[in-house]
């Protein structure tokens, strides 16, 4: 129905001929913008209501005195549902460490929480389909699980700022929200996110639409296609400083995939955009030493690059086998 609406607007009302570059770009732009904004509004609201049941305090209790492996897995999964904003990263980190949770388990949470976020998920679902969105979630959880285990094994406790270990977290009853308060929270949360991403979404879809309509079919194949062995590494390195534009980068990546960018390269790029965020690193600097930030970023970067190559390898063989 949305497609029909976009077609009507572009081809009938604006009288642009179907099949022209301008027509195809505009049609793509209107259809995707409306679809993504509908999805964003509805799904973020639903996700926020679910999230209101999983405050960080509950995550802390659920993780209890979980050790490695089980703890890493649970933390990676809780990272999906627990609301996270980088301004709360410090109290969350201290709360986890103070409760006796191993550093590696805490990091599994800190990797999963921003990586598997609803905005990236909606953009992937809307533009690539649910199978790719699910693949992304699974990959994000595995990345958080393994990243946390590696950090745990490295025994980096001495790289946590000393004052963190001295803080005592108070005990108290959990604040239970009424349904009304949950809906109000969800409404504010949705407004907040939409306000933050709308411009990036429009710019991203706009650029994606231009690529879709104007770029030659094989233009990506030349630079970032399967023929370039360094494509994944370059894609990830470009992505690291792009944080907060997750909403804007996914439509561009989708258009690039349409022009021949391999899926693994695309996934690695998107994951690097959200998983490694400069603002979060600056905030984490308050609780961990610079060396640990470097190790953290290093591990995530290498893991994402590996994931990118793995997917490219699997999909190429999948295609050859089919």
């Amino acid at each position: 129905m949305l497609q029909a609406l976009a077609d009507l607007l572009v081809y009938r009302l604006l009288v642009i001929h179907p099949g022209t570059e301008l027509g195809s770009s505009l049609d793509f732009f209107f259809y995707d913008t409306v679809k993504i904004f509908l999805l964003l509004t509805v799904i973020i609201f639903v996700v926020a209501v679910i999230r209101s049941f999983f405050p960080p305090e509950r995550a802390r209790r659920l993780l209890g005195n979980k050790r490695e492996y089980v703890g890493n897995l649970l933390a990676s999964l809780l990272g999906i549902v627990t609301p996270f904003c980088s301004c709360s990263a410090v109290p969350l980190f201290i709360g986890f460490i103070e409760s006796g949770l191993p550093l590696g388990v805490t990091f599994s949470f800190l990797i999963s929480s921003p990586t598997v976020n609803e905005v990236a998920l909606i953009m992937l679902w809307g533009l690539f389909g649910w199978d790719i969105a699910l693949l992304y979630v699974a990959t994000g959880v595995i990345l958080a699980f393994i990243g946390g285990i590696v950090i745990g094994k490295l025994k980096l406790e001495h790289l946590v700022e000393d004052y963190v270990y001295k803080i005592k977290v108070g005990d108290r009853e959990e604040v239970v929200l009424t349904w009304r308060e949950r809906f109000e929270y969800a409404r504010d949360y949705t407004k907040d996110i939409l306000k933050r991403v709308w411009l990036f979404v429009i710019i991203g879809i706009g650029l994606g639409a231009l690529i879709h309509g104007y770029a030659p079919i094989d233009f990506i194949v030349k630079y970032a296609g399967p023929g370039n062995p360094f494509a994944v590494i370059i894609a990830v390195l470009i992505a690291i400083p792009l944080y907060s534009n997750a909403a804007g980068t996914i439509p561009i990546v989708q258009a690039l995939v349409g022009k021949g960018m391999p899926l693994g390269t695309a996934l690695a790029f998107m994951m690097a955009v959200v998983a490694i965020s400069t603002p979060e690193m600056i905030i984490l600097r308050k609780v961990i030493k610079p060396k640990m930030i470097a190790i953290f970023v290093g591990i995530i970067t290498v893991a994402i690059i590996f994931i990118g190559y793995l997917f490219n390898f699997v999909f190429v063989h999948h295609l050859l086998g089919a």
Binding site: P55, P56, E57, R60, P83, C85, C87, S88, V90, P91, L92, I94, G95, E98, Y163, K166, I167, K168, V169, G170, D171, R172, V175, E181, E184, Y185, D188, K286
Partner: peptide, 29 residues
């Protein structure tokens, strides 16, 4: 941060009235 954590609050912002945590991680109406 140490004083915030003393109240057991892990997501800011929070409101505490006479020592009791009333809300956390959201802006109440």
């Amino acid at each position: 941060i140490a004083k915030i954590m003393e109240h057991g609050v892990m997501s800011t912002p929070g409101v505490v009235i006479d020592g009791v945590v009333k809300s956390e991680g959201r802006i109440p109406s």
